[in-house]
Amino acid sequence: MPDPAKTPAVQLSNIRKSYGEHEVLHGVSLTANEGDVISILGSSGSGKSTLLRCINMLEVPNAGSVSIHGEAITLDQKPGQPPRARDMRQVNRLRAKAAMVFQSFNLWSHLTILENLIEAPVYVLKRDRKEAIAEAEALLARVGIAEKRHAYPAHLSGGQQQRAAIARALAMHPSVMLFDEPTSALDPELVGEVLKVMRDLAAEGRTMLIVTHEMGFARDVSTRTVFLHNGVIEEEGAPAEVFENPRSDRFRQFISRDH
């Protein structure tokens, strides 16, 4: 039994991913320890979202391995065949631990906000419905939309929907949180309310991997910054370091651009 404090929350080794002939990740390795807040930066097409989606097997890597809390996901990666996870039950169990927040919120539109929060806890984790409801209401209060619990997603603003989606992720009691460009689909004036919730989560010491375009947030909040370019990591380190003294020219250009 490995020491849980020392076991990385997420470990990606030498991940390769291609679509047809086109390889978008050329062997990326990344380790997130407990309490790490890692921002993953990069221009569009750099492969940053694909990398995040490889963690919970929304994309199955063609080569390389993924471990969550020391448990490696068993993959079939035979040449000439599309890669696939061998045991979907294992994948589903691990997915429930690594809750994802999407760019386009993806709240289930046929369910109310409260129902969205209790859906996976009740049906995937088989928690008691009453307890799940009580907890969901507390989470909605925490992200500031308690009064919207019986509304449907379509009746909320983008910022409110994304806060509800973060609450939905928290309701899973995740050990890792994956954020896939959580503010990119929002109007500028709504970005702040979502970033505030995420700042609070980081301050709690949660393990978070965040694909983002928000430079200020990456600089202030994350414990580590990773810059991806053309499917390889170009720059990696503590934000204070890499933003002050970028080693890579591309990252220097990237941060000097007006974002």
Partner: peptide, 13 residues
């Protein structure tokens, strides 16, 4: 996206 979200939350088929 909503189907993807359900998969990401560990729902079996």
């Amino acid at each position: 996206g909503e189907i993807e979200a359900a998969r990401a939350y560990g729902m079996p088929s």
